[in-house]
């Protein structure tokens, strides 16, 4: 069996994918081999998985980018990810955090945004790349809170965080693992989390929605899907093994350390959620008029 992961080996989510693959493999009594391919924002891997035999030997790590954002962002996505796969279960939906350097005058999200509204285009933010979760979450924040800021894309969160610390960026929306150490040491301040409500990991930090923009929500989510037409009994087996793996032991701990709760919902819930997400991001991408050829 193989697990197709739509990004290069080595990222935080790849590490989780490998943990889950190991657990699922053990439960099913065979090895689940991880195959990484990060080409074209994950689109290549997603297309390959869509074309694979629906015999239960191929599972795709379905994440937000290739599943619901890229079809609206890239012009050359040849498949509709929502119809090409049978969803199994959502693994998690991790919140991102809005952070500013420790010497920033803004102690509340509201102050930062007030400042941004009064100085359109003057503030600079970094992201892990064009179309990354960190970029899209900031675009959405700018739309909801009606401000303009200048985007500087990096390759991955690391170098962007470096420039945030160096005082060259005013703020950043980034994933928890990419900045957790610096939050704990006090080198950056968290102004808000991007989930609908507070995250258990940061009980004292409000969500963006609670800070005055109730419609705002942006999470980095991923789950498992199989190619359309995979026999139901096999799909159920894989789903069961996956849910057991993510809700217990090391995977659970690892997810919680990143402020992400393991979910493991039903295929129906996962399908409905992806549909809603797809519609929402179509709107956001259109409004922001970002597009990738």
């Amino acid at each position: 069996m193989k697990l197709v992961v739509p990004y290069a080996a080595g990222g935080g989510t790849d590490a989780i994918a490998r943990l889950v693959a190991q657990g699922v493999g053990e439960k099913l009594g065979q090895s689940l081999i991880v195959e990484n391919n990060g080409s074209a924002g994950g689109n290549v891997a997603t297309q390959q998985a869509a074309k694979a035999e629906p015999d239960g030997y191929t599972v795709l790590m379905a994440n937000q980018g290739p599943m619901v954002v890229n079809p609206h962002l890239f012009k050359n996505v040849k498949i509709d990810p929502l119809t090409a796969f049978d969803p199994l279960t959502l693994i998690t939906a991790a919140p991102l955090v809005v952070v500013v350097p420790k010497n920033s005058p803004h102690k509340l999200l509201k102050e930062l945004i007030d400042h941004a509204q009064k100085n359109p285009g003057k503030l600079t933010y970094g992201s892990a790349g064009n179309g990354s979760a960190s970029h899209l979450a900031t675009v959405l924040l700018a739309q909801e809170a009606k401000f303009q800021a200048t985007h500087v894309p990096y390759r991955g969160a690391g170098p962007a965080v470096n420039d945030l610390l160096g005082g060259r960026m005013d703020f950043m929306v980034t994933t928890v693992p990419s900045i957790l150490g610096l939050i704990q040491s006090g080198d950056v301040q968290v102004l808000a989390v991007t989930s609908k409500t507070r995250a258990k990991k940061f009980p004292e930090v409000p969500s963006v929605a609670q800070s005055g923009w109730p419609a705002y929500e942006a999470t980095a989510w991923y789950g498992f899907v199989v190619p359309k037409g995979t026999p139901k009994d096999i799909a159920d087996k894989i789903r069961k093994a996956t849910v057991e793996t993510i809700t217990t032991g090391v995977v659970r701990e690892r997810l919680e350390a990143e402020a992400a709760e393991p979910i493991g919902n039903s295929p129906e819930e996962f399908t409905a959620m992806m549909k809603a997400e797809s519609a929402r991001w179509a709107e956001i991408v259109k409004k922001a008029s970002i597009s990738v050829d």
Partner: peptide, 24 residues
């Protein structure tokens, strides 16, 4: 700082967090 300067170091971050250590 917990900032990985290259891809291999990013993997090290992954390894640390798996073991419950927050690089920083």
């Amino acid at each position: 700082l917990g900032i990985p300067p290259n891809a291999v170091m990013a993997l090290m971050v992954g390894a640390m967090t798996i073991h419950g250590i927050i690089p920083g």
